Amino acid sequence: MDSRTRSYIKKKFKSYYNNFPLYLPHDFKDREWGFILLDEAFNAFMRRHKSFGSEGELHEYLTSMIPAHCYYSVAYYKYPSAANMSDKGWSGSDLIFDLDADHLPNAPNNYSEMLDNVKVETLRLYDFLTKDFGFSEDDIQIIFSGGRGYHIHITEDNIKDLDSNQRREVIDYLSAKGLNLSHLFHHKRFVPELQKDGDDLDLNINSGWRKRLNAYIISYLQDSLDSSNALEVLTSHKGIGERKASMIIDLCKDKKELNKIKEGNFNSLFNIDKNLILSIAEQGIEKIRLNIDEPVTADIKRLIRLPGSLHGGSGLKVIPLTYSQLKDFNPLVDAIVFNETPTLINIQTEQKFELNGMKFDLDVGIQEIPEFAAIYLMCRGVAEHES
């Protein structure tokens, strides 16, 4: 980014911070703050160990220093501005989850599609947090990061004292790390030490992974029955030939037997082939498990982006959202804060992207495009400002 472009971006960011409200975290006076300034963004040098005694102090810092990136600590400290971490006096941390679009399996290259994918993953995480962990909507804050994904903040008091290892256990549960599939089924031929009376294969479906896998198995079987290639789908499992597949199809057509399966009793299917349910469940785990950045959640002293601030790598706004808002949220429209004033830029490489409902297909060289799109390209480092 050349000096002319940096000066232009600073002017626009300053105007934004002069006119738009921030969303301060609760107990913000007890948190450490960190910033990467636009003048130093190329080296990604962070000015940290800051603290603010009032909203006015923070606002003055933003409008005078004009950062490219604004962060605050997930931790609460007795002395948040102490230069050494050991001197800060840690007193607890929020629980944070980071979902990044390019960390997801088979992530597309298209930015819009990447954001669609990570939004689905964020909604799935919210479902886990409310249903499996019992957090209420009031405990959960969803944040669009302004870049490639979302953060989820849990501020419930009972989690603040969790150490890093305990937070990793939360990630292990969400990602199904170390999940012993056979122990989910109460069957002595899978788990001899259980020594359960009778020989029933059942899945306790009241909560957690058992409930989720039961729903997946039911859906899988019903989809198989409804498909025109049910035999092909079922015989794709090891040990299932056409005869066994036909038996499974006939069994699932029996309403009484299907209801047993819905209640978590898989004994009839087990009698046809003992490995079928495990095979389907293994597929289910891969589809249900979440892909979350573990180091972010485990780090009790992490700095996280400030809602309401601007992302210096995109020019988009970091936005707090409720669950209902997230469903219809389109970051490439709703996170735009700059206007449509025609702006001259010099594009370094060909660019093809969507923003604010408009499609751009731009060649190298000087182009006039709306301000919001120009700032987006300049922040990404692929264009310079032309006065």
Rank of each mutant, 00 (worst) to 15 (best):
S3W: 02
F35T: 04
K14E: 11
R31C: 02
G89L: 11
A68Q: 06
F20W: 04
H49I: 01
Y72I: 05
A68V: 07
D94I: 11
Y16G: 11
G56E: 10
S54I: 00
R31H: 06
Y17P: 06
Y76S: 05
L58M: 10
S81M: 14
K29V: 08
Y77R: 09
S91G: 14
P25H: 04
N19G: 09
S86A: 13
I36F: 08
F20G: 01
Y77N: 08
A44E: 10
G92F: 11
K11G: 01
W33S: 01
F20E: 14
S54Q: 00
K10L: 09
F52H: 00
P25E: 02
P67F: 15
H69R: 08
F35K: 01
Y72M: 05
S64Y: 08
R6N: 13
N18K: 14
K50S: 03
E55H: 02
R31T: 03
Y76K: 13
N84R: 13
K29M: 06
G89I: 14
M85L: 15
G89A: 12
D27L: 09
D39W: 05
S3A: 03
R6F: 07
P25N: 02
G56R: 03
D30M: 13
D30G: 08
E32V: 12
K29R: 14
W90P: 11
T63L: 01
L62N: 12
K50F: 13
